[in-house]
Amino acid sequence: MNANKYRKILPFMRLLFFMGLVPFFSSCEKVIDFDPGETTPYVVMKSRPTNDSLVSVYLSRSTFFLEDDYYDYGSYAGSIPYITDASVRLYVGSEYYDGTLLQDGDRKYYQFNIRPKVGDSLHVEATVPGYDVKVTAGTRIPSMPVVEIVDYEVEQDEYGSSPRFRLRFKIKSGSGREYYSLSLDRSTQKTQMDSVTWIWDTAGQQRVQCYFMTDDAIFSNTDIGTVIDGDDGSLYGTEMSCSNELFSNGEHLFVVEFGMDMHSYVGDDVSDMPVWLAVRSLSPELYKYNQTMQAQAESEELLAEPVQVICNVSGGIGVFGGMSQKEKRLPVARKKTQQ
């Protein structure tokens, strides 16, 4: 092709090209009309009845997704729209108990004067003014987990400055599907709270981060090494959940390891700072709720599939899921910190 012909074709190709660019610059946004169905807030229920502990039920309201982001408070409970005028009744077997509204700081909840036992079936009903339908849910307190400490040790590094704590323990499983949550903490003492027995660090200003380390496939999809500390607001709770999918009717060895130099100054008068291991058996509904809440919190990738939080509350959302708990205290002498 000679140069003259080329010069004639080039402007034509440029014209075609700019015609091709038009759509890329003219894509547009448009508000659409839609039928959302129900815009009224749902009643949100949260309760984790635990063996031998008083039962608490939290009630609040959801918000329609076009509402303003007024409740952007992370773990700050002050603006949670608690429901305080509900009538809540708990059935344990054939007996029932009415809830009493209590307040702990900003948190408000209904408490029942009953400590359920392992194997008890529980059913809760909440009548909320402004809602025609009762909010109901049921669960069962699962059997206690069987935990055996194999060994634990404090391992010094070559400089003696960054000791590491290593624990090995086993969970023995029944033949059916069982669900667990594991949490680990290092604290100076255990405090008995009103409703649930918690491992509670009253001395440290921050809690120790611990990692569960295992290469077993059962945990691979929870991302090995999940931080079980809850300081990061993006994580749900302080627990790692798992099922006995791969060790049904058997036992599984867990290895836990963490550095011991991460806790803050707590005073020289504290000589012992034990590690607390809590293993909880979860009802299926609580396990699913925990897992999906955790997965949704961690799902930040643009192209990730959306995560649906699995609830078991009829007439509302949330979870009413039983659990039973076993704790192990592992004494560890505390190295005095320098001021």
Binding site: P36, G37, E38, T39, P41, Y42, V44, K46, S47, R48, Y58, L59, S60, R61, S62, T63, F64, F65, E67, Y71, D72, Y73, G74, S75, Y76, A77, I80, Y82, R107, Y109, G230, G233, Y236, G237, M293, Q296, A297, V309, C311, I317, G318
Partner: peptide, 15 residues
């Protein structure tokens, strides 16, 4: 279509 906060833990979620 709905957003909620776990009333026990304060964790935010979409429903």
């Amino acid at each position: 279509m709905q957003r909620f906060v776990d009333p026990e833990t304060g964790a935010q979620s979409s429903y």
